[in-house]
Simulated scan of single mutants.
Amino acid sequence: MVSLVERERARLSGLMVGAGPEGATLCAGWAVRDLAAHLVVREGRPDAAAGIRVRGLAGWTERVQGRAAERPFGELVKSFRSGPPAWSPFNLPGVDGAANLVEFFVHAEDVRRAVEFEPEPLDGELAEALWKRVPMVARFGDARSPVSLRLVHPDGREVTVRRKGAPVVTVTGGPGELVLFLYGRGARAAVVAEGEPGAVEALAHVLPLPAA
């Protein structure tokens, strides 16, 4: 049985091939070739991947990723599509699904939504899996948010991440749309933000929202 993360890996691979190496993405400064290089380095070069999160190592990561981007595009995508190398930490039990589902979903949408796109309903299983990850993603997003966030699923379920003394902004959307918003892709996500105008404006400065 194909797992959700395997399905998202295949979907992202197909989108990158369809867009081509110089295709646009929502990752500032990155064409599809750069995104493919990032994905390959992230899974296959743990010595360099640390710079994705650790600012002091970012220069080393950029150099390794730049060299990877010089590889033939088809080779890069094939390497990503085939999964992490046998010795990669991503092959440890449970790591692939835990670390990659949101990553692959967001980057697939980075490619799909960088150009004109049509709304695409999520498979119910994927939508539920993403919703279960919203609290974790929300805590990551809250580190940058100047307001408390109340994240509301269309069926009424909600997750609240409070910032002491800060006003609450309610953001409503499907699980995938909320994940994209929390990862800074809200300008291309189907979410609605409600709250005090000043609070909504402050939020939009750090986590973009769709144009009114």
Rank of each mutant, 00 (worst) to 15 (best):
residue 170 T to N: 02
residue 63 R to M: 14
residue 149 L to M: 08
residue 112 R to A: 08
residue 90 F to Q: 06
residue 93 P to R: 01
residue 105 F to A: 07
residue 106 V to L: 07
residue 55 R to C: 12
residue 164 K to M: 11
residue 126 L to T: 12
residue 160 T to P: 00
residue 73 F to R: 01
residue 113 R to I: 10
residue 142 D to I: 15
residue 161 V to C: 13
residue 111 V to T: 11
residue 124 G to M: 04
residue 76 L to D: 07
residue 161 V to E: 11
residue 125 E to N: 14
residue 163 R to T: 04
residue 143 A to H: 12
residue 153 H to W: 03
residue 55 R to S: 15
residue 159 V to F: 06
residue 80 F to A: 09
residue 144 R to K: 15
residue 99 A to V: 07
residue 155 D to W: 01
residue 99 A to D: 02
residue 109 E to W: 12
residue 138 A to R: 07
residue 125 E to L: 11
residue 146 P to Y: 11
residue 96 D to F: 15
residue 150 R to L: 11
residue 172 T to E: 13
residue 55 R to I: 15
residue 133 R to Y: 15
residue 107 H to S: 05
residue 84 P to K: 02
residue 118 E to I: 08
residue 56 G to M: 01
residue 155 D to P: 03
residue 71 R to V: 14
residue 169 V to T: 00
residue 160 T to Y: 01
residue 58 A to C: 06
residue 86 A to G: 02
residue 155 D to Q: 02
residue 162 R to T: 01
residue 78 K to C: 14
residue 138 A to P: 12
residue 95 V to N: 02
residue 91 N to S: 06
residue 154 P to E: 01
residue 107 H to I: 09
residue 56 G to S: 01
residue 170 T to Y: 03
residue 57 L to M: 00
residue 125 E to F: 14
residue 169 V to C: 00
residue 150 R to D: 09
residue 95 V to Y: 08
residue 91 N to M: 10
residue 79 S to F: 05
residue 105 F to I: 08
residue 154 P to A: 00
residue 161 V to T: 09
residue 87 W to H: 10
residue 66 G to W: 12
residue 92 L to G: 06
residue 65 Q to G: 07
residue 148 S to T: 03
residue 69 A to N: 06
residue 139 R to S: 14
